[in-house]
Design a protein around this nucleic acid. Structure first.
Length: 468
RNA sequence: GGCGGCGUGGCCAAGUGGUAAGGCAGGGGCCUGCAAAGCCCUGAUCCCCGGUUCGAAUCCGGGCGCCGCCUCCA
């Protein structure tokens, strides 16, 4: 098998993937912050993680995939005055922070599954790993990378010489523009909180005891702490959105490399680009978004959204428009139809006929998870004149291990799975009319059913109908 | 101010040195009593200018336009 090549943000180049431990790929994905519903733009990062995992599995690696749930509130900005989003959402909705977190975690897990994303081996919540986070801060303290101010325990970025390396930051130049709402006492503008002290006059729902007093963890420490617990001091791949490169991932690296004295902490970093909508990124903060249920309400299946997403490479921004998603839904519908028709085909499967398409498909996958190219080969397989139905199905079912479009369970949209005596009766009448070439009558019956939203297809095996 | 990305047929979008994948929509045809479904055929020289090269959408330089990060953010 050819090697898997991935674009590594750390080196800004494509590299052949090789795990630290032979045969075992350890992957960490930055999951959602569950103070609000996750929209379809957010889901794109799960798609990247899923395609990666499927490619690794296709390469016969054992995969340990860890995803975190951030169920403790981060602040709306860096300053004391910053509100905690989780607490704010709870107050607005008259619920507890835990209830808010549970609600959106559940929605996210459901959406993920509906979109065909494989479940992670470990799903870990920040609030259930406070001890690990405290332990990591203690390690940083021991190693001399932290300092205490009124507001909390902070990481001293000037002590970590590689701090600017990963994101290729120009800290001086950034300084010129200034940071918003900075905290008094910070030694360097880029320094960030490891542990925040609870304000004496405010009672928070989410705060814990620590060696430094009551408070709550900083907003990067959880990923360092939980990945360390489940994947060890060093691991293979870390995924997330491009927005995380400059701050979140930069700070994770600083924490982990300084706490454990390792480098590189993570070998490969994969980042997905954003989904654009109405001329800007889809975002919670502006309300410029759709959630998966919005699409479902419009008759667009979650897997049609997956199909839509597969049409663009994960490292490119993708434009979401109504026309584009509806086009994708149509395309997905047709692909499923083909799969359903081919699924039970018997016949010879000639390896020499299958090989060229198989090779092109997997070459696309191994080339930095190029789903659009893989999808194009899939369509070629569907329509390849040189292949019999059994061969086409052999390819489709194999390819779906990566595509994740659930083609194995494809049901033709025009093959009813229910039976309705009245409709079946009308269809029989129509067939009788057709037999005696009374087309006025047969068309009248069809129009009648069409008005009820039932469409009819005449096939060599007789008529089929479906609703909708 | 720093960093990153993009501009390919009506729409979405691959391709990053050898004369433009795929899907959707449109047009034409086949099939059908008619439809539907399906199948076949059909359209772009790649934002602009200059350069390198035998040859560039693809490399370099300069423009114009657009998106993102630098503050929570996929």
């Amino acid at each position: 098998m050819k090697p898997l090549v991935l674009y590594n943000t750390r080196t800004r180049s494509k590299e052949i993937f090789e795990p630290i431990e032979a045969g075992h790929a350890r992957v960490y994905t930055c999951g959602p912050t569950v103070y609000a519903p996750q929209h379809i733009g957010n889901l794109r990062s799960q798609l990247l993680a899923d395609l990666l995992k499927r490619a690794l599995l296709a390469q016969d690696y054992r995969v340990t995939h860890v995803i975190n749930i951030t169920d403790v509130g981060h602040l709306t900005d860096d300053a004391d005055a910053g509100e905690d989003k989780m607490e704010r959402a709870a107050a607005e909705r008259g619920k507890t922070a835990a209830e808010i977190a549970a609600q959106y975690t559940e929605q996210w897990l459901r959406d993920r599954e509906r979109m065909g994303c494989l479940a992670p081996e470990v799903l870990c919540k920040a609030t259930e790993h406070i001890a690990e986070q405290i332990a990591l801060v203690e390690a940083l303290e021991r190693n001399g990378f932290s300092y205490r101010i009124d507001d909390g325990i902070y990481f001293d970025t000037s002590k970590f010489s590689r701090y600017a390396e990963f994101a290729r930051l120009d800290l001086e130049a950034q300084l010129a523009e200034g940071r918003i709402g900075d905290v008094p006492g910070k030694r360097n503008p880029a320094d960030f909180a490891l542990w925040k002290f609870a304000a004496p006059d405010v009672r928070r729902q989410q705060e814990w005891d620590s060696p430094w007093g009551r408070g709550f963890p900083g907003w990067h420490i959880e990923c360092s702490a939980m990945s360390r617990r489940y994947l060890g001091d060093q691991f293979d791949i870390h995924t997330g959105g491009v927005d995380h490169i400059g701050v979140h991932h930069t700070n994770e690296i600083a924490q982990s490399e300084c706490a454990d004295g390792v480098h590189p902490w993570v070998r490969f970093w994969l980042h997905n680009e954003f989904l654009n909508f109405r001329g800007e990124k889809m975002a919670k903060s502006t309300g410029n978004l759709y959630v998966l249920d919005d699409l479902s309400d419009r008759g667009i299946a979650p897997l049609a959204f997956r199909y839509f997403s597969l049409q663009a490479h994960y490292r490119q921004q993708q434009t979401f428009t109504d026309e584009a998603i509806e086009s994708a839904a149509t395309g997905y519908d047709r692909l499923v139809n083909h799969a359903a028709e081919l699924r039970e085909a018997d016949g010879e499967r000639r390896a020499d006929k299958l090989e060229p398409l198989r090779e092109r498909f997997w070459d696309a996958v191994w080339d930095d998870l190029n789903a659009p190219r893989a999808l194009a080969v899939t369509w070629e397989a569907v329509r390849s004149e040189g292949l019999n139905p059994a061969e086409r199905w052999a390819l489709l079912s194999e390819f779906d291990a990566f595509l994740g479009l659930d083609l194995q369970n494809a049901t033709p949209r025009s093959q009813t799975t229910e039976s309705d005596p009245r409709i079946d009766g009308l269809l029989a009448e129509r067939e009788a009319a057709r037999a005696r070439r009374d087309f006025a009558e047969s068309d009248r019956i069809r129009d009648l059913l069409v008005e009820e939203g039932i469409s009819i297809e005449d096939t060599p095996d007789g008529p089929r109908w479906r609703r909708g």
